[in-house]
Computed example of a mutant assay.
Amino acid sequence: MAINLQKGQKIDLRKSSGEALTNFCVGVNWGAIETTKPGLFGIGSKKVIEDVDLDLSCIMLDQNGELVDWIYSPEYNAWLSQNKFPLGKLTSNDGGLRHSGDDRQGDVGGDDGLDNEIITVDLNRVSNNVDKIFFFLNIYLNQGQNFDFSQIPFAKIRMYEGTPTRVNSVFSNYDIVTDSSYRGKGALILGKLYRRNGEWKFDAIGDPTDDKLFIQTIQKITQNYK
Rank of each mutant, 00 (worst) to 15 (best):
F135G: 13
D111Y: 09
M159K: 01
V48L: 07
I133T: 07
G88F: 04
L13G: 09
N124A: 03
Y225A: 11
S100Q: 11
K47A: 04
N4C: 09
Q145F: 00
D122S: 14
S172A: 15
L40S: 07
P38H: 06
N168R: 08
G113Y: 01
D69I: 14
P86V: 10
Q219D: 14
F136Y: 14
L188H: 03
F41L: 12
N168S: 13
S17Q: 04
D12M: 05
F149C: 06
I139A: 01
F154S: 06
K89F: 04
D62G: 11
I189A: 00
D55H: 08
Y182D: 01
L123H: 04
D102C: 12
D148K: 09
K212Y: 12
L5D: 08
M60F: 14
G44S: 06
P74A: 14
R14D: 04
E75N: 15
A2S: 09
Q82D: 12
A204Y: 12
K192Y: 03
L141Q: 03
P86M: 08
L123E: 03
L213A: 10
F136I: 01
Y174H: 11
T222A: 08
M1Q: 09
K10S: 14
A187M: 02
I49Q: 05
L56P: 02
I205Y: 00
G206T: 11
T91M: 08
Q6R: 14
G8W: 00
F85I: 03
F85Y: 10
N142I: 00
V167P: 07
N129E: 13
P164G: 10
F149S: 06
N23S: 15
T91A: 06
F171N: 06
F149Y: 07
F214H: 12
S45I: 04
R166F: 11
E199S: 14
L188Y: 11
W200E: 04
S57P: 11
D179R: 04
S100T: 13
F41S: 05
P38L: 10
R158V: 12
T36G: 07
R183T: 15
V52F: 00
M159I: 03
K46Y: 11
W30P: 06
L137E: 12
G8A: 05
D102E: 10
M1P: 10
L97R: 05
D94Y: 01
I157F: 15
Q105M: 12
Y194L: 02
Y72S: 00
K201R: 14
G44M: 05
F147L: 01
N224S: 13
N64M: 05
D102L: 12
S172Q: 02
G31A: 08
G27H: 03
R125M: 14
G65A: 06
D55A: 12
G198S: 07
S169H: 11
D107Y: 03
